[in-house]
């Protein structure tokens, strides 16, 4: 079953067309990585998928329900009200710079939305939060504030915060690029563990070896278009000149 379908997505900032007719889909349990040079529109496509940006054309479908579509006059219509709320509860996003709430403790960062937005039972939410923190190796940090944690710890809290909403699909926008190499490994391990549990994920990353190892499918994007979309092994042995040039650059950078 498809969790997400994005069809013929267009997105411009003023004159600048950033996403040029991109289509992609993600099935349940699938892990899709998106790679590409900076400025190619990777963040923008995630931001469109998570409704942080409005698309200029195309359609976005979650679990068979239309979150946005383009009518015959070319106007994009977004789902509203309760329908939008229901659709938006399908996904979570892990930001590059965490965006934790600095005035809330780790525990409150994770539990506040499940309790006050999803109106779930407090005990159940706290139990889940503790389980998640344990999995992240942060159980002893439950009462800390974000400013008392390392970047890697903050990012793990933000992953726990997203997971506690029980999303069907989790997006990661370069979750390790704000982190030192050692801290990067912490986060990659967490994502690997999620992959073992068959969490559906879309990961924008510059960690090529990680993408190769963890994904079912990789998309290589450049200048707002999908250049190539295939399995990790085929991607890393691609004949496509642009793919080779991009991956070669990474290889040389070590």
């Amino acid at each position: 079953m498809k969790i997400l379908e994005m069809n013929h997505i267009h997105k411009s900032f003023g004159e600048l067309e950033v996403i040029k007719d991109i289509s992609l889909s993600v099935a349940e349990g699938e892990i899709l990585s998106i790679i590409g040079p900076s400025g190619s529109g990777k963040s923008t496509i995630l931001r469109c998928a998570t409704m942080l940006e409005t698309i200029n054309g195309g359609e976005i479908i979650y679990m068979g329900e239309k979150a946005a579509y383009t009518d015959n006059n070319g106007n994009v219509i977004y789902a509203k009200g309760d329908k939008a709320k229901k659709i938006n509860s399908n996904f979570g996003l892990v930001f590059q710079n965490f965006n934790l709430f600095p005035h809330y403790s780790v525990m409150k960062n994770i539990t506040d939305a499940p309790i006050h937005v999803q109106k779930r039972d407090k005990t159940e939410v706290f139990n889940q939060a503790r389980e998640l923190l344990e999995k992240m190796g942060l159980l002893d940090k439950a009462d800390y504030y974000p400013c008392q944690l390392s970047g890697g710890q903050q990012q793990r809290v933000s992953i726990a915060r997203a997971l506690c909403m029980n999303p069907k699909i989790l997006f990661f926008d370069e979750p390790t690029s704000a982190l030192d190499p050692e801290l990067t490994l912490e986060i990659l391990k967490v994502i690997r563990d999620l992959a073992k549990e068959h969490m559906t994920m879309v990961i924008v990353t510059h960690e090529m070896n990680f993408a190769r190892e963890v994904s079912n499918r990789i998309i290589f994007m450049e200048k707002g278009v999908i250049v190539e979309e295939t399995t990790p092994d085929k991607m890393f042995n691609s004949d496509n000149e642009r793919t080779k040039a991009f991956l070669g650059k990474y290889h040389n950078m070590g």
Binding site: L52, N88, F95, N97, N99, F101, V117, M165
Partner: peptide, 11 residues
């Protein structure tokens, strides 16, 4: 980012 994180969490 604070607004965006809040929006993603459904506030």
């Amino acid at each position: 980012g604070q607004y965006e994180a809040a929006k993603l969490l459904g506030y």
